[in-house]
């Protein structure tokens, strides 16, 4: 079996290269969810080249759309887009826009970028799946800062009201947003307790342990009658020494020297 840590590591290299090449983009929150995406696309979701265009299959909504480099990187690992195409990120005429566009990029299941909206879309997808009595599941990745948005809690209420046990939210809990630490910008803690109070099943997991994320996703499938949120403890900028836990690397591109250090941190180029 392929070691998925190598897949995630290659994604991280692509993330820093894409952002470096575009001279813009969001490396911090992309690096923090690379392992989560690896677990989802390689161990959990039933998505492959053959069912890519089906309206009905497991779907992922990258609600924190600024982490588009991570999404594009995993789509490239799956072969839905080519690795070369990654280097068109944010450039004119590219299919891979600054924030994910479902109409232009194969494998992007929902257009996102305006934070707070993805969980609601996940609610609609999950309700549709229930109506059709089909077994497909909906996965939504949200940021912790994103949970400042009131709409997240509207969606949380609805997901629990409609008993959406076919909906799984993964919260990339890296503790940072743009202006600094969550607790300094807007203290929305404790998020787990809040979701529990909204009627959700809550799991906690090390968001960089691909096996643990996989197991939590599988365990969520057995929880009936309520939606599950996995609070994934992560490090923003994970894997790149100077980006780790630095709010300043939320939306900044590395220069040539910084790219070289980043790639070295990630084990160097083959």
């Amino acid at each position: 079996m392929e070691d998925l840590r190598l897949v995630a590591n290659n994604m991280r290299k692509n993330i820093v290269k894409m952002v470096h090449n575009a001279k813009s983009g969001h490396p911090g929150g992309s690096l923090s969810c690379a392992d989560i995406l690896t677990a989802l696309y390689f161990n959990v979701m039933n998505i492959d080249k053959n069912n890519l265009n089906d309206k009905k299959r497991d779907k992922l909504v990258m609600s924190k759309g600024h982490a588009s480099p991570a999404l594009y990187a995993v789509l490239a690992e799956k072969g839905f887009i080519s690795e070369e195409e990654l280097m068109t990120f944010r450039l004119i005429n590219s299919r891979i826009q600054g924030h994910p566009n479902m109409k232009s990029c194969p494998g992007v299941d929902m257009t996102t970028g305006s934070l707070g909206q993805g969980l609601s879309v996940g609610v609609g997808m999950s309700l549709a799946n229930k109506l059709d009595n089909n077994p497909f599941r909906t996965y939504v990745i949200c940021g912790d800062g994103e949970c400042d948005e009131g709409m997240i809690w509207e969606a949380a209420m609805a997901a629990s009201h409609y008993k959406l046990d076919n909906l799984l939210m993964i919260l990339d809990h890296n503790g940072l947003q743009i202006d600094g630490r969550n607790e300094d910008v807007m203290n929305n803690a404790p998020l787990g307790e809040k979701f529990a109070a909204f009627g959700w099943n809550v799991f906690g997991v090390d968001g960089h342990d691909i096996d643990a994320v996989t197991e939590a996703c599988k365990a969520a499938e057995t929880v009936k009658g309520k939606p599950t949120v996995i609070i994934a403890e992560t490090v923003k900028g994970k894997g790149v020494s100077f980006m780790e836990n630095q709010a300043g690397w939320h939306g900044k591109a590395p220069n040539d020297e910084e790219l070289a250090i980043a790639l070295k941190d990630l084990g160097g180029e083959e």
């Binding site: 779907k59 929902m110 609601s120 609610v123 309700l127 549709a128 059709d132 009131g150």
Partner: peptide, 15 residues
């Protein structure tokens, strides 16, 4: 806001 977001989700899945 949530209703419109959910409507988008329904549409994504063919409703």
């Amino acid at each position: 806001a949530n209703m419109i977001g959910a409507a988008a989700g329904f549409a994504c899945n063919g409703k």
